[in-house]
Design a protein around this nucleic acid. Structure first.
Lengths: 335, 335
DNA sequence: CTGTTAGCGCATTCAT
DNA sequence: ATGAATGCGCTAACAG
């Protein structure tokens, strides 16, 4: 309601609103004395500039949009936490939406954010996002976007990813070093960069070790526990069962665990399993899951910094950057 | 940039901006034909009303503020997920900030949200929030607040909680039924309602069963794993060691686990442990933790609905409501 | 049923 | 160094 405005201040100080505005924004052409008078009163009255009025004028707010598939995933909540940390320090607030893995909802929610004149967008796309046109359109309308983890490639925007190829390569190489040669892969939707890169890492590790690739041992599904269950069941239908399974992520690996245990088989004696991400729960699985850890919070911070740079250097011509963070192999008892 | 405005539409249709505005908002005094013409063109041009302009006029936006101690806690990310789900369907977006358990930052971030003219606030306060004045001030300025889980009492606002007293009572009653009589409690900061209620439940269960209360077995600390470690160490210094420990929440219980195991003791043979919340990881602990489960997503949905009601019925006089959700005792192997 | 006018609070251009 | 005037895009009171 009755929050104090520029006009209120100007009346009390016998100054014009414009002078007050300038004083508050540290305009060079304002005398030190009036600046001090103004800032003192503003502090006393706890003046807070109305961000809507400010944004309406500037055509941009101090709000950043963040869209993730689901907030309630340790990976995404960790990334959001990192984003919030950086943005808070930079004086921005974040608007958070979840696509619920639905590309339609993703676009709707994005449009809603644009209507609020966000200054930029941080997004990890849904598992069925195939069309890059909406994002290209957003970029063309002048809104900066930084993609993270699940990114859209071949687009004029920066992104932050981990070295998915290398992570997958390390995982499979580790399996091979541990003596396994019959190695399967349970992956995700083919439109996702993380799927393509991790599959590529898997294939490359096998080839490098002169292990032929068995098409029956590569299955493509979703990214959740239920998909891991489905994937493991598929693999177990194959005539020759694999001896080790590399999973695109930890939830899928968790699904594999339940199928293996239901069949009365043992991990790693009958089947070794390795995941990707290092969710907090997987070290508590029985046996603890070997996996590839990703720097989640750091990914959020890094993406946030990239976006801030882009917002602040709108003059200099924009060159999209790709920040690739390192993964780390974590060996536990499942391999 | 060049997004289409009301004026653009009005020019193309040879109508005044106000007519177009009314047509879009389904004003009763507009003919069906013009409504259709307007809505058709708006759809074609993908017109999106500028929410800043709209909000500037109405003094309220379609944004809801959400403040939690830390996003990266399963409990809070689950609640946020529930909030987002309801708010999305109601046409609101959410602005999310974390206080990082710092009441100073909590207020700062709240003021930033108010400057963005949020329509309401959903908050679970930080562990060192003691001063209710800032919140009273916000309410007086006309912004509705709904508190959840960690609430401020004696304030003219609605809230959503679980029956903390009953949950704690059930937990301790369960310990007693299982044959334990030497039962300790590791709690949190005294200013928090959840601490007071759960402690009260603990005491009541003991009294009801004619078990005398041992002050040495009640420790008050924080809400994280490290606090559980500290709390357990304190309890183990006491001459007569308790045989069971009720912890204010699961992270604290997890801390207790590590101390017990470090001392070479066994759960539940040497010490039984029960938590509160049912975080996803605790069923995987060794042994799986008995706990009191809370309906997290439902808590978020419920709080969101409460806030929406309040936003929509601003005419009818406001009567604060307290929604109390049920908890459930989950018995695993730790008790 | 529709148009005109004004104003939300701020930043900025143009005066002085 | 400061003030006056203007407009961002929308809605609503007031006219007709």
């Amino acid at each position: 309601m009755g929050s104090v405005t520029l006009k209120d201040l100007s009346k009390q100080l016998n100054l014009s609103p414009s002078t007050v505005s300038r004083a508050l924004n540290d305009h060079p052409a304002i005398s030190l004395t009036t600046k001090e008078r103004v800032q003192k009163l503003a502090a006393e009255l706890k003046y807070q500039p109305n961000q809507l009025a400010r944004g309406l004028h500037k055509k941009r707010t101090q709000i950043i949009g963040v869209i993730v598939p689901e907030i309630r995933h340790d990976f995404f909540s960790a990334v959001i936490s990192g984003i919030e940390e950086i943005m808070y320090k930079a004086g921005f607030t974040i608007m958070v939406c979840q696509s619920m893995e639905d590309s339609q909802r993703e676009i709707e929610t994005l449009e809603a954010m644009l209507a609020h004149q966000i200054s930029g967008l941080l997004i990890s796309v849904s598992e069925n996002t195939k069309n890059s046109l909406p994002f290209i359109s957003v970029l063309e309308r002048g809104y900066p976007i930084v993609f993270f983890d699940r990114v859209i490639e071949n687009i004029n925007a920066s992104c932050v990813v981990v070295d998915d190829f290398d992570g997958a390569f390390q995982a499979v190489e580790h399996l091979i070093q541990s003596g396994y040669r019959d190695i399967a892969y349970i992956g995700g939707p083919k439109n996702l960069n993380i799927q393509r890169k991790r599959l590529h890492g898997y294939r490359t590790a096998l080839k490098k070790n002169s292990i032929s690739i068995n098409r029956d041992w590569i299955v493509s599904t979703g990214l959740n526990e239920k998909d891991g269950i489905w994937g493991a069941q598929e693999l177990f239908k194959v005539e020759k069962r694999p001896r080790a399974i590399f999973c695109i992520n930890d939830p899928v690996a968790t699904g594999v665990y339940s199928v293996v245990q239901e069949k009365g088989l043992s991990i790693p004696d009958d089947v070794a399993v390795i995941g990707f991400t290092d969710d907090p729960i997987v070290r508590l699985l029985n046996p603890p899951l070997s996996t590839i850890s990703q720097p989640k919070v750091e990914m959020g911070k890094s993406a946030a910094r990239l976006l801030l740079e882009q917002i602040n250097h709108t003059e200099t011509e924009f060159v999209p950057r790709v920040v690739t963070l390192k993964t780390k192999l974590i060996v536990r008892k499942s391999t």
